[in-house]
Computed example of a mutant assay.
Amino acid sequence: MTRRIGAGTLVIATHNAGKLKEIGALLEPHGVKCISAGSLGLPEPKETGTTFVQNALIKAGAAAEASGLAALADDSGLSVAALDGRPGVYTADWAERQWFEGEPGRDWYMAMGKVEGMLQAKGPDTPRDAWFSCVLAIAWPDGESAVYEGRVDGSLTWPPRGTLGFGYDPVFVPQGRDVTFAQLDPDEKHRISHRADAFAKLVAEQFG
């Protein structure tokens, strides 16, 4: 039997207010109060893992150890079959600007263009299958942990379409749809997304 969070306070291992709000809304009906690692002044650990599971566990474990509370972290990204699963865990890194590309920050159009360029270099008949992955990891201060994995399959399109999403959403067409994640109504996207898949598994085991 997997250990349960139960009602109480859960640290969300993020410094992103939007992510805290999104996760908090999902867990609030189950009596869970969410606070962010950022609001507690906790440092962000280096994500040295080579898989989504490893990085999610690194973040959740660091937050749980530093706060003395149960902590939840997620790690997610895009994988492209023809690129041997890249960018994968380096999804955000591919959007990082180099020193000669302007102010520090992330340029998602550049990242989408990098993926497209690599696919085009392989030829016009290259399969464009891709998937988004999300791993949610819960860690307790004593070292125990639980992991939930979600996935949504689809294909890549070019040029980018839509303004409702973020990251690689404008080039990702989920399976069974003819529009990109960035063209879908946000409620519909959240219903079918990789994060929704992972959260459904977490809720079923933790609160079912």
Rank of each mutant, 00 (worst) to 15 (best):
G113C: 10
G113Q: 08
A13V: 00
L202V: 03
K114W: 05
P186A: 08
G6T: 03
E205I: 04
I35E: 09
T163P: 01
P141Q: 12
G105I: 00
L26Q: 12
G77N: 07
L26N: 03
D129R: 10
G162H: 07
D129P: 06
G85R: 03
L184C: 04
A62L: 10
G24T: 06
M1G: 08
A182L: 14
P104D: 12
V89H: 05
S145E: 15
D129N: 14
G150K: 10
D74V: 02
A81Y: 04
A139L: 07
L83H: 04
A66H: 12
P170S: 05
G38D: 08
R128I: 02
G162F: 00
G117C: 04
M112W: 03
G77P: 10
M118E: 14
P127G: 08
R106P: 00
P186N: 13
R128W: 04
L119K: 05
I58N: 07
H194T: 10
A62G: 02
R161A: 15
G61Q: 14
R86W: 02
C134T: 15
E22S: 07
V203Q: 15
I138T: 10
W94L: 13
Y90Q: 10
V80T: 01
A95Q: 08
L119E: 08
S67R: 05
P124I: 01
L27I: 04
Q206E: 15
G68C: 14
F52L: 05
G165L: 13
Q206S: 11
G123H: 08
K114F: 01
C134E: 14
A198D: 14
T50M: 09
D125G: 02
V89L: 02
D129M: 03
V53W: 02
G176F: 04
G31C: 14
R151Y: 04
K201V: 06
V80L: 07
K46T: 06
Y148T: 01
F166G: 05
A95G: 08
E205T: 09
T2S: 15
M112P: 00
V147I: 08
R3V: 03
K189Y: 08
